[in-house]
Amino acid sequence: MKRARAALGVVVAVLLTGGIGALSQVPYPVEAAGQAWIRLSWRVSAPGIEECRALTDAELSDLPIHMRRDTVCETQPTVYRLHIALDDRAVEETLIRGGGTRRDQPIHVYRELRTRAGAHRVAIRLTPEPIGNAAGGIEARTGAPSLELTQELELADGEVALVTRGPDGGLEVRRREP
């Protein structure tokens, strides 16, 4: 009886310890096979545009004397429009504002397009929205770039392709060398 109990004690201890070993490395299927992802990740600055204009006589007379000035200037933050199409189908169309309280901090694009492995056509456009009477083109006035990429991709099973900004500042696709 005592011996049987001791043997059972050993068996239970071994099973519990083995249980720790098993639960410590459980094969977990993270993602199904046959997929391919396109990741978008980059950052662009979002400098605002300072717009100045003369005050009208009516506006001037509303202000206390010590605050009267000929012109007032306001900084308008840059807003970008992001357009993403995969295989000629629009998957996203959003406006992105800069960070920070004054909305003049850089914006970050960080997206994941999950699709099947195979041939795809991706079209991405990130363009600053026109602000006020910004004549002469917003890019020229603020340095806010317009980014665009349209590319055919043959994606392998399990591959992640990264769309990011290259050394010249434009968008490019980066892939693991096979």
Binding site: P29, E31, R174
Partner: peptide, 15 residues
């Protein structure tokens, strides 16, 4: 770890 591969399988420590 590989940013350019979709993780298919991992040996997960459930604890």
């Amino acid at each position: 770890a590989d940013a350019f591969r979709i993780p298919e399988r991992a040996a997960l420590d459930l604890f």
